[in-house]
Nucleic acid binder design. Structure first.
Lengths: 236, 236
DNA sequence: CGCGCAGTACTTGTATACAAGCATCGGTCG
DNA sequence: CGACCGATGCTTGTATACAAGTACTGCGCG
């Protein structure tokens, strides 16, 4: 028997840490990353840090300018729109493949999820985790759960923008929209489910547009954003 | 002015070479890859080879078993189905966003593309390049050209399966289906375009299923495929 | 005071060295 | 003859050293 899963490698830990920090805006868009600094701060060598950065570049969350520096990428409105389009396409298409008899286990899980979404005192991070699980669950209901991974890796920009928006907007409306979607799905009315899902996803997108007007500095400017080298501070 | 594009790094060259060899089946599914061997054969050190392999793992084209070996991943039917679903969702959704007045430049390009597809003596690689360009062009026509990148990185498994199929099946039928799609698109009949596109993509998928029955050894078995370590050959 | 230019400290890219682990081969013992 | 068991070669993971290049700093000069 060979181990095919999770050899608990150091790179994976670094990658997950960095990705979380970028997505939660703990590392804000535009922040300068130094392979050496990250390595020292995480207690590893440059190698796993560097390899993690390569993966984050692949996801579009980090930009690397050779011989200049690495930076958390600014939220690119074009990429946000791409992610939105891709997500909407996948989630709407999955509704077409819903079985007549939905898996009761997943349905129960979705109901519990919706209850938790209405629980008071929910943090932004909690809500995001529940939101992720809800949409992933809907895809699993249609037999396309594994396609969620691709959506996840593509919607990094969208997620950061949403997080910016959720810091000021309570998620009350979204939770109700989730209820609408699930009810439509369980009633077997694909048309209504599509409409509810589209309304929901578009609301999310509009929210992003609103936050963009208020905090344009976190978004990529149209002209090629030139990275600013950190001032060199010598301590002695 | 800072360079934001293609610093002609060694890793990129290695990555593109390896990816091409995997997709063209020059490195067939199941083939054992050795970082040291690849480095020596490509005239670089392990570092860029290793970093390229990490990217290929991310795309699902390569599997790495720590302390055991790296292998070209077998074609996973589940991942093929995922890619098919994702692709169909994206391409069908893009049809909804077609503008009333399609960009004449892209249209001309698509027409030229279709003409070339009918040219006799087309190699499999030529047809694949044209097929890629055609579908990408349709997305660009709808203003979602950049979403193609995500589809590309997700459909590696699908592409390899298709290539297996195309080695025996002439692409005549596909070219005609392409014509049908473009005509429907240009006529503005979204419903007919959707039907033509769906027919086409499903035909591709059925082709994959057919080849799977003939060459099951290239596909991943249901039970966890155990990699076979190369025999150690000592020369002296 | 302003401009130019060299020095310097930092960046990422690449190469190499070391560490840990698995699988096979070959010898040994029952 | 068969089974166990250690040596050995490979594998990938990590750490470190070197190379090439960029941008800032600060001194010198006009």
């Amino acid at each position: 028997m060979t181990r095919t899963t999770s050899p608990r490698t150091s790179r994976r830990a670094v990658y997950e840490t960095l990705r979380r920090k970028v997505l939660t805006l703990e590392l804000p868009p535009g922040a300068a990353l130094s392979e050496n600094e990250l390595a020292a701060s995480l207690g590893v060598s440059r190698t796993p840090v560097r390899e993690s950065l390569i993966l984050l570049v692949e996801e579009g969350l980090v930009q690397v300018f050779p011989q200049v520096g690495s930076f958390v990428s600014r939220v690119d409105p074009d990429k946000v729109a791409d992610a939105q389009f891709l997500r909407e396409a996948v989630e709407l298409a999955s509704l077409e493949d819903l079985p007549a008899e939905p898996d009761p286990e997943i349905v129960a899980e979705l109901r519990r999820n919706l209850e938790e979404q209405r629980r008071p005192g929910l943090t932004v991070e909690d809500f995001f985790a529940l939101d992720e699980a809800f949409h992933h669950g809907l895809l699993r209901l249609a037999g396309h759960g594994s396609a969620w991974a691709t959506v996840v890796s593509a919607k990094g920009h969208l997620d950061r923008a949403r997080r910016l928006g959720l810091q000021e907007t309570p998620p009350s409306g979204f939770a109700e929209q989730h209820v609408d979607i699930l009810e439509a799905v369980l009633s077997g009315d694909v048309g209504r489910a599509r409409a509810a899902m589209r309304t929901h996803l578009r609301a999310v997108f509009d929210d992003v547009e609103a936050i963009r007007e208020r905090s344009p500095e976190l978004f990529a400017s149209a002209s090629g954003s030139v990275p600013v080298r950190r001032n060199v501070v010598v301590w002695e």
